[in-house]
Simulated assay, not measured.
Amino acid sequence: MSTTASAPDADETCAYCGSRIFDHDPICVRDCDDGCGSPAFFCNYACLSAHVDENDLTAGDACEWSPEE
């Protein structure tokens, strides 16, 4: 499977807060477990983190770690 990446429009807005992404430190995210659909753009890591938390996107996806292992 292959995907292509292209630069977002200059007026692209954050998928979480609606701010223009290029006014900040933008991040592009693509869900390749779901057919590699359209990318989502976030203006910074805080908005990406809030989006992940609010949509419970880490449930069942994180490795478990124990210092005893």
Rank of each mutant, 00 (worst) to 15 (best):
P8S: 09
T58H: 08
Y16N: 03
R20K: 15
A50Y: 05
D9E: 12
G60S: 11
C47D: 01
A7K: 10
G60N: 08
Y16I: 00
Y45M: 11
V29W: 02
A50F: 04
G60Q: 12
D33Q: 11
I21A: 03
I21Y: 01
W65L: 12
A46F: 02
T58Y: 14
P26T: 03
G35Y: 09
C43I: 02
A40L: 14
R30H: 07
A15G: 03
I27A: 03
S2T: 09
L48A: 01
C32P: 14
S19N: 14
I27H: 02
C63N: 13
F41R: 02
A59M: 12
L57N: 04
D53G: 05
D9Y: 13
Y16M: 03
R30N: 07
S2G: 10
A15C: 04
H51R: 10
C14G: 02
C28L: 11
S38L: 14
C43Q: 00
D61W: 06
S19Y: 00
S49D: 13
N55G: 02
E12Q: 10
D33E: 14
A10T: 13
E54T: 12
A62Q: 12
S66M: 06
C28G: 15
S38R: 15
C47G: 04
P8F: 09
D56E: 15
F41I: 03
I27L: 14
R30S: 07
S66R: 12
P67Y: 06
L48N: 01
S6R: 11
E68H: 06
P39C: 13
S6W: 06
E69I: 08
S49W: 06
T3V: 08
P8K: 05
T3I: 13
A50H: 07
C32D: 15
C36S: 14
T4A: 13
G35M: 08
A5H: 10
T13P: 01
G37W: 10
D56C: 12
T58W: 09
F22A: 06
D33A: 10
H51Y: 13
V29C: 03
R20M: 07
N44P: 03
S2R: 11
E68A: 07
S6H: 14
D23Q: 08
M1Q: 10
C28S: 15
L48M: 06
W65Y: 15
F22V: 11
T4C: 08
D9P: 13
E12A: 05
A40F: 04
I21L: 05
T13Y: 02
E54A: 14
C36N: 15
P8V: 08
G35T: 11
